[in-house]
């Protein structure tokens, strides 16, 4: 009796399977839809935001530029006018308002280069960083302090006072050297240059002096 029942049911097995199949597919259509969160998860965003890799210092970036490091691109998120006025060497201007334009995406949405955002302070750059991070772009950094810090550290480094540690003097020397690379001219730089100029013909002068010394001796004879 039971076997007959089972046999009757199993003779419809293909129809039953097809029905389940259609029901499952139809269930997808009927399910209430909800707005899915796009981009990366909030936990991942938080871990990116607290990561020490988020900021890059002006010294690091100066070092990279001087060593012609090809692994990063600088993105200036200020307005075009300020960009034309002054910017870092080889920087690309993508104003914050045009961040997600068609032509700026190839620079931001790639994995070959580190992207370094900067603005006058790091306020706008941070916003660009956050927006791009939400979209899931990779290798994003922010220039810590932006161009203002760039000026106070690299272009016009503060001279350490006498009571400061030796590291401060070393740092000052490095910063001064890098500022020279970026075209800053120091008065003592000229002095050094003049000294070096006066040093090179010095042997000749010494010789002439020796000759001068000899001459009076000769004259004496």
């Amino acid at each position: 009796m039971d076997k007959k029942k089972i046999a009757r049911v199993t003779s419809f097995r293909y129809q039953i399977l097809a029905l389940i199949f259609i029901l499952l597919a139809g269930g997808l259509v009927l399910l209430p839809k909800y707005q899915k969160q796009e981009g990366i998860k909030s936990e991942a965003l938080l871990s990116h935001a607290t990561s020490p890799e988020r900021y890059i210092s002006t010294d690091q970036i100066a070092n990279k530029i001087i060593n012609k490091d090809p692994s990063f691109i600088l993105i200036d998120v200020r307005e075009e006018e300020s960009f034309k006025n002054y910017s870092l060497p080889n920087a690309i201007n993508i104003p914050l308002a045009k961040l997600f334009d068609e032509e700026s995406l190839p620079y931001l949405n790639q994995s070959q280069f580190d992207v370094v955002f900067f603005s006058n302070d790091h306020f706008y750059a941070d916003q660009a960083w956050m927006l791009c991070n939400r979209r899931g772009f990779k290798n994003l950094r922010v220039l810590n302090g932006g161009l203002n810090t760039w000026f106070t550290t690299i272009i016009n480094p503060e001279k350490p006072s006498q009571d400061m540690p030796a590291e401060a003097f070393e740092l000052y020397a490095t910063r001064k050297a890098s500022s020279m690379y970026f075209g800053v001219f120091y008065p003592d730089q000229q002095a050094v240059a003049e000294e070096s100029i006066s040093n090179t013909p010095a042997p000749k002068k010494v010789i002439t002096v020796q000759k001068k010394k000899k001459k009076p001796v000769e004259g004496g004879c």
Binding site: F21, A25, G26, L28, V29
Partner: peptide, 11 residues
């Protein structure tokens, strides 16, 4: 979702 539903019916 509609594509899947129609695809299943076609199947």
């Amino acid at each position: 979702y509609w594509v899947i539903f129609i695809f299943s019916i076609i199947a």
